[in-house]
């Protein structure tokens, strides 16, 4: 691991100022992606700006018809939150399937979303529920946030503070975990909020998380697994690696989407 200097700001403003002033500075949340990446020398930030001392960045609260989750809220907090389990059980369930218990004690929602790993679970829920990402500068709708592999709409000195999830009528997440890493080989998140239907896939796309509009249209007539029976996504555009070919991933998208709709309906 390359040497770095650590900073522990007490406010979001101080953290943002450090990101601007220090060369090659990176935010540290739970560290469960960044620290392994630094060990491999795939990342070598000169400055680490740790967010754990910043007040007000964690916790889950209901605001009107939305659940607002602080960026530093850990996966286990989302998994076990009574208000989350009651309002959006699909999201609590998703958090409970990330990694393993020790990882869930440290990993955070903000860290996961900012990293936008193409096989991560949270991007599927954020896009699948039409959430809004709140930063120190602005509000970004999920449709505008994810920009490809490990790429987001975040600017260099922008910090996620909260994620706002609207309550939906129906939602479910089904994933086919990679047997070794527990990342999603393919994961499908479906939701229905009045007339808005979302079918979102993580793990499969060569360019990260994406919506399947053909499935969404088919589900508008009737929200049930039969409505998307026989529908497929093209293998073109799917990721292909030692864990699964593009064709296999495309096939899984159809299978898991039907299972997710059945679980949500």
């Amino acid at each position: 691991m390359y040497a770095f200097t650590q900073h522990r700001p007490a406010t979001v403003r101080q953290a943002a100022s450090l990101l601007t002033k220090q060369e090659e500075a990176k935010l540290l949340a739970g560290g469960h992606t960044l620290i392994p990446t630094m060990k491999l020398r795939l990342a070598g930030p000169k400055h680490l700006v740790d967010l754990s001392k910043v007040e007000g960045l964690s916790g889950i609260e209901m605001k009107g018809r939305s659940l607002v989750v602080g960026a530093m809220t850990t996966h286990v907090e989302v998994e076990t939150s009574p208000i989350m389990k009651e309002s959006i059980p699909a999201l609590a369930g998703l958090a409970g399937k990330i990694g393993d218990p020790a990882v869930r004690h440290r990993g955070t929602i903000g860290g996961s979303i900012a990293n936008n790993d193409p096989n991560a679970d949270y991007p599927a829920a954020v896009l699948g529920l039409g959430a809004t990402i709140i930063t120190n500068k602005r509000r970004i709708h999920a449709d505008e946030f994810f920009k490809g592999l490990f790429e987001t709409a975040l600017e260099d000195d922008e910090i996620i503070t909260k994620v706002q999830f609207p309550k939906v009528n129906k939602a479910a997440y089904v994933k086919f975990p990679n047997p070794a890493s527990r990342y999603a080989l393919v994961g499908v998140f479906v939701s229905k909020r009045s007339s808005e239907i979302r079918v979102v896939v993580t793990g499969a796309g060569a360019n990260g998380v994406f919506r399947v509009t053909t499935f969404e249209e088919a589900l508008k007539k009737r929200f049930g697994p039969k409505s998307i029976e026989g529908l497929t996504v093209p293998a073109d555009g799917m990721a292909s690696d030692i864990h699964g070919s593009a064709e296999y991933r495309a096939h899984l998208v159809g299978v898991l989407a039907r299972r997710a709709v059945a679980a949500a309906a």
């Binding site: 650590q6 522990r8 540290l28 560290g31 469960h32 620290i35 392994p36 740790d50 754990s52 286990v76 218990p101 020790a102 990882v103 004690h105 440290r106």
Partner: peptide, 15 residues
């Protein structure tokens, strides 16, 4: 750490 299981290879001690 504070009663919760964590992987000590993935936490800096100052954190």
């Amino acid at each position: 750490v504070n009663g919760k299981a964590i992987k000590s290879c993935t936490v800096f001690v100052w954190q």
